[in-house]
Write a protein that binds this DNA or RNA. Sequence first.
DNA 1: CACCTTTATAGTCTCAGTGACCATAAAGAA
DNA 2: TTCTTTATGGTCACTGAGACTATAAAGGTG
Lengths: 246, 246
Amino acid sequence: MQGYDKYAFEPFAVTVDLAVFTVRAGRLHVLLVERGQEPYAGHWALPGGFVLPEESAETAAGRELAEETGLADSDGLHLEQLRTYSEPDRDPRMRVVSVAFAALVPDPPAVRAGSDAARAEWLAYGTQGPLAFDHDRILADAHDRVCAKFEYTGLATAFCPPEFTLGELRKVYETVWGAELDPANFRRKVLGTSGFVDAIPGAARLTGGRGKPAALYRAGPATALHPPLLRPSTVPSDISPEGKPS
Amino acid sequence: MQGYDKYAFEPFAVTVDLAVFTVRAGRLHVLLVERGQEPYAGHWALPGGFVLPEESAETAAGRELAEETGLADSDGLHLEQLRTYSEPDRDPRMRVVSVAFAALVPDPPAVRAGSDAARAEWLAYGTQGPLAFDHDRILADAHDRVCAKFEYTGLATAFCPPEFTLGELRKVYETVWGAELDPANFRRKVLGTSGFVDAIPGAARLTGGRGKPAALYRAGPATALHPPLLRPSTVPSDISPEGKPS
DNA sequence: CACCTTTATAGTCTCAGTGACCATAAAGAA
DNA sequence: TTCTTTATGGTCACTGAGACTATAAAGGTG
């Protein structure tokens, strides 16, 4: 922690990369940009950019997210640091350390291509090909994190509009987890977790155009869920002889 | 993601900071170094150092840990990236982005003071005064992470020697969580979680010099625990002061 | 030695939470 | 009208957990 000679080492560039998720048409989508230049020209990549000299990584991530989606830090938006990727050879041009973030946005707003990207698009998660750099791994890590946090936080409401029905919230869970949930049991658990959602008295809305109109709710103040909402098929598959050292 | 001019910005220094924990004499301890120079001369700080040009942050963290404790990456040692701290003013001398790690080591080995530090010592967690830089926050974040991961991973075995009794493992949980656990219920849950610990047939050892000799176990292959081992007083304190409807 | 304390280990009882259902209500569609 | 769809309310059985009791096996103390 001494010898602070600014030029003692080859300089590191510090960037942020964003895995921005949304749920659209019952599918999980991720925001990707097409690279216009080498390396990986023509490949899809996660949006991101340099951390400016006066910024923290969090500030830079919020700025990049706003540039790409037009979403400000207000709204139901959720932005969270994931981890930092610092392999020496992860960018062939120079030493780049990237702080990755996961973002959840409620509805796919119009995409505004950033100045750096040829174009930006929402792609259904899983349909994108191999991404540039180590972005496949970052995206997979972000997806794992989001799936896990759905169990013990009220994060799922970040994918919903300000007012939503329990059916819509359940659909979000089903989409992210890729599993069907029993509507009655889901309802019992969500309403039994105080602070998860707040009822809007008297309000109701038709969801799919069919069926009985559903009551409306807003996101509650709770961040941690007690008890948690566990995934169904969390059967001991990762138990036995291996697992990743997370 | 373009304009990779190495000297376009003031260079960032990238460092690692380590929150190294161990359990000694029934108390949680953290490894700290005393700073020998300004800023914060005489203050305690987390061990750490620069990421070298050919290193990843993980490699640098492992190297620093070995330098401070003499522990190699083998052993029961656990090293895990926590998050990255990048506030522009966190170091008054220059722009330093620090990737923080949490480490769990089984037994307090002899401390070898690094070349940068006046001295390094194990201090009981909670008894250290204000640390240098933003290390108080890093340490608190690391502690939170470790407490939380004890619930749903077999991480606690990283604090134990290669062979341990269930009483020793329980003591680790009680030390980290600061709560007493029922021995019989703890035993039932640990043994009921497949892959958590492996029995060593026929082996037994006296623990406190008193009582019936206890069977010996080794850390099992499981990383995630199903079902998790929940903390006792995890009562909804962050929820509203309401009981849930039954 | 008998008798205590201490720790490990086994079992019991009860309650909360959950999954698997079933039933009813209220809307649009045929 | 009748069917389908979705929301909502309820039951039943099983599991896991906390609280508790009982037994086993060591050392300590008189």
